[in-house]
Amino acid sequence: MEDILRPIYQERASHPNTLGVLMIDYREKGSPITDTFDIVLLIIVKEAEQPLFIKHYTYLNQKAAMHIVSKDQLKEWMLLGSNRRIIDWIFNGKILFDRNEYITNLKLELREFPFYGRKIKIGLEFAKLIRRYMDGKVFFENKHYLDAYNHIVHSLHHLARLAVIENGFHPEVTVWNQVKQIEPEIFKLYEELVSSEEDLQKRLELLFIASEFLIHSRTNTSVEHLLVVMREKEQWSFQELQNHEEIKHYSVDLGMLIEFLTEKNVIEVVNVETKGQGIFHRYYRVKKKL
């Protein structure tokens, strides 16, 4: 099918706006990496009216998809981890066109995983972990065990991704295969949750205890990025944090993370008087002892 698609990607490659073209060819039917398509063409461009444009093709009994993505959208996906397939596509895709070695350098950047970019990703993943863990704990305490199970499964997934990032790798779609090699302790927790013959309540109880320890042991290193930003000023309102160029990526998980860190005495609350008697503005700052 590559021969059939060649005129399509060659036309795109001739545009000065095109930075590179990758082909992802998965022969296994039903592969989640390509959304069941036989071939995916990933075309990276400098600028685009739409950050992502997708077109589907059929040839005989095969199907292909073309994804045209702006470099800014690609960078955002890589930073936020919001499109997990993209790492696999860049690592394993066949380079069909590479203007000024853009894709070659992108692959190199992914392999080296710059330290500061890693710190941001660790912070974002930890925030998601805390959100799922805290929500799951509330469901568990209220005896909504199936809802608690759903959240603890997701929290373990975020913990697995966090462990992969800490070890200098990008989490891939098959993250549990990575974790099995990197942090078998987390993999065993996941196995215990999904395959143990203990009743659900008992499994969850043990998982929350184990997760509490794993979260506690990672807290200080996982929030380094947030604390570095917060030390730029004496104190912050929540809105100021939300508006910060880097912290805004924490999105809906920021509030839960701030409350968690307040409970753990990593961050402290500063009450600032308002015009209303007995009502205070709530500001946050990093604890001095840290």
Rank of each mutant, 00 (worst) to 15 (best):
K137C: 06
M78L: 15
W89N: 11
H154S: 15
I247T: 03
K46Y: 04
T219V: 13
S251M: 08
S211P: 01
F169A: 13
R161P: 06
I39W: 03
Y116R: 15
H158D: 11
L106Y: 05
M1P: 14
V138N: 08
F213S: 15
R132Q: 13
G168E: 08
Q62W: 10
E205C: 08
G93L: 11
I130D: 08
N100I: 00
F37K: 00
E101H: 12
R27W: 07
R203Q: 05
D98N: 05
E232T: 11
Y57P: 00
V40E: 04
E185I: 15
E191T: 13
S196C: 07
H151Y: 07
E11F: 10
Y190D: 12
E185D: 14
L108H: 15
K29C: 10
E101G: 00
F187L: 10
V194S: 07
G255Y: 04
V40G: 03
V138D: 03
F208H: 06
L129F: 14
T262E: 07
I279Q: 06
K275E: 08
F280M: 02
N167M: 04
L227E: 02
F126T: 09
H157S: 13
S70N: 05
K94P: 06
T219N: 04
D253P: 06
E212S: 12
I4L: 06
G93C: 13
